[in-house]
Simulated assay, not measured.
Amino acid sequence: MIIDTTEVRAINSFSRLESLKEVYGLIRLLVPIFTPIFGITIGILIIVWLERKLSAGVQQRIGPEYAGPFGILQALADGTKLLFKEDLLPSRGDIRLFSIGPSIAVISILLSYSVIPFSYRLVLADLSIGVFLWISISSIAPFALLMSGYGSNNKYSFLGGLRAAAQSISYEIPLTPCVLSISLLSNSSSTVDIVEAQSKYGFWGWNLWRQPIGFTVFLISSLAECERLPFDLPEAEEELVAGYQTEYSGIKFGLFYVASYLNLLVSSLFVTVLYLGGWNLPISFILIPDFVGINELGGVFETTIGICITLAKAYLFLFISITTRWTLPRMRMDQLLNLGWKFLLPISLGNLLLTTSSQLLSL
């Protein structure tokens, strides 16, 4: 029997080509998934380092400086320590609720990043209901905290979970009319369309100027949703030890720690998208091609510039939230609920009514 070596080589080449295509397809599938996760992880490490350094500056102390240059690896060292610490379980608690609570909190917040446009060509899912998807997803996290507090079989944890649920409901309702007002102005609920609607006049085209009342309400409600001071009542150390986190240790406590910073970052990104023009420069986009030629460069350069602008605006909100932590005292629970229901909710509804009236008159 005579074997044609040319045919055998052709078959081998074809099989190698098919294998390469499969590997390439797998890489194309995994890269869009792991790239945002890697970027978000780096962002969280930077936020933790910034908060510690800014807090140290406000309190006139040094802050972390030994783990890596300028202490920038301190958050990574703390995470590694939590990863290897013993995971303790309450003997009389509901172990299933106790165990899945931190995971639900992290996953629900991570899903919100899918609709955030970091640049014109860099968004995982450009959905027509993008901002409302974020609102619906963000309402899941308090249930995870309530599950964790109930499953801990600890009175401080349970009170912390109840506070988290009450606080989320109280401040998510004023948040929604603010988002509705932005959707009316942009004639769309897509995050990409909202950013593009602010691109015409540069700095003066941002929704910050067209919705100053909504921006103020959104800013306060976002801090309350993130449970940042002065709204950190669900984990108040002086009253509830650590709230819903009291019985947690090891990696489960680390997940709560990550979830809080993930929520803070996603809130700052949505402030950027809804009110600060997203990836758009403060200078009018009409004037940029005459001086910089950004339209001709395009591609990777344009995407990189968009990411840098988006993150710079987001970190401005982070700076405000960090300095607020060491400026304002913690509120009482009745003051917290009164602010949400009796003050922010009527203002946000009135702002929505004014926005609707102005849009109807402009038709």
Rank of each mutant, 00 (worst) to 15 (best):
Asn187Asp: 15
Ser181Arg: 02
Phe218Ser: 02
Gly214Val: 04
Glu225Phe: 03
Trp209Ile: 14
Leu223Asp: 08
Val179Tyr: 09
Ser190Glu: 13
Lys200Asp: 12
Val195Asn: 07
Pro212Thr: 05
Glu196Val: 03
Leu175Asp: 03
Ser186Ile: 04
Leu233Gly: 10
Gln198Asp: 11
Pro230Lys: 00
Lys252Cys: 00
Ile213Asn: 00
Val195Arg: 10
Tyr244Gly: 05
Phe231Trp: 05
Ser181Ile: 08
Glu235Asp: 12
Asn187Glu: 14
Pro174Thr: 04
Ser181Val: 09
Asn207Val: 13
Ser221Asn: 12
Cys178Glu: 10
Cys226Asp: 10
Ile173Gly: 06
Gly214Phe: 02
Leu233Arg: 14
Leu175Lys: 02
Phe203Pro: 15
Glu237Ala: 14
Trp206Gly: 07
Ala197Leu: 03
Leu184Arg: 00
Thr191Cys: 13
Ser183Ile: 02
Lys200Gly: 02
Lys252Ala: 01
Ala236Pro: 00
Ser190Val: 10
Phe203Asp: 14
Ile251Met: 10
Tyr248Met: 02
Phe218Asp: 01
Trp204Val: 11
Ser186Gly: 05
Gly243Asn: 06
Phe203Ala: 15
Leu180Arg: 03
Lys252Phe: 06
Ala236Cys: 05
Tyr201Arg: 05
Val195Glu: 10
Leu184Trp: 00
Asp193Cys: 10
Leu223Pro: 13
Ala224Tyr: 01
Leu180Ser: 10
Pro212Ser: 05
Thr176Val: 08
Thr176Leu: 12
Asn187Ser: 15
Glu196Gln: 13
Ser190Tyr: 01
Ser222Lys: 01
Leu184Asp: 04
Leu223Ile: 08
Trp209Gln: 06
Tyr248Gln: 00
Leu223Met: 13
Glu247Lys: 08
Ser222Ile: 07
Glu247Arg: 11
Pro177Phe: 07
Leu175Arg: 09
Glu172Cys: 03
Gly250His: 12
Gln245Cys: 00
Leu185Pro: 06
Gln211Thr: 11
Ala242Arg: 13
Cys178Gln: 03
Lys252Asn: 07
Ser221Phe: 02
Ser189Lys: 05
Pro230Gln: 01
Leu229Gly: 00
Ile213Lys: 01
Ile213Val: 15
Thr176Gln: 09
Trp206Asp: 08
Gln198Met: 11
Thr216Tyr: 07
Tyr244Asn: 04
Ser189Arg: 04
Gln245Tyr: 04
Asp193Leu: 03
Ile213Met: 08
Ser249Ala: 01
Pro177Ile: 07
Glu235Ile: 10
Gly202Ile: 01
Val192Asn: 06
Ser222Trp: 00
Asn207His: 15
Pro234Gln: 13
Ser188Val: 10
Glu247Pro: 09
Ser188Lys: 07
Asp232Pro: 01
Lys200Pro: 00
Ala236Phe: 03
Arg228Ser: 09
Tyr248Leu: 02
Pro174Gly: 05
Gly243Cys: 04
Pro174Asp: 03
Pro234Asn: 12
Leu233Lys: 12
Lys200Trp: 12
Glu237Leu: 11
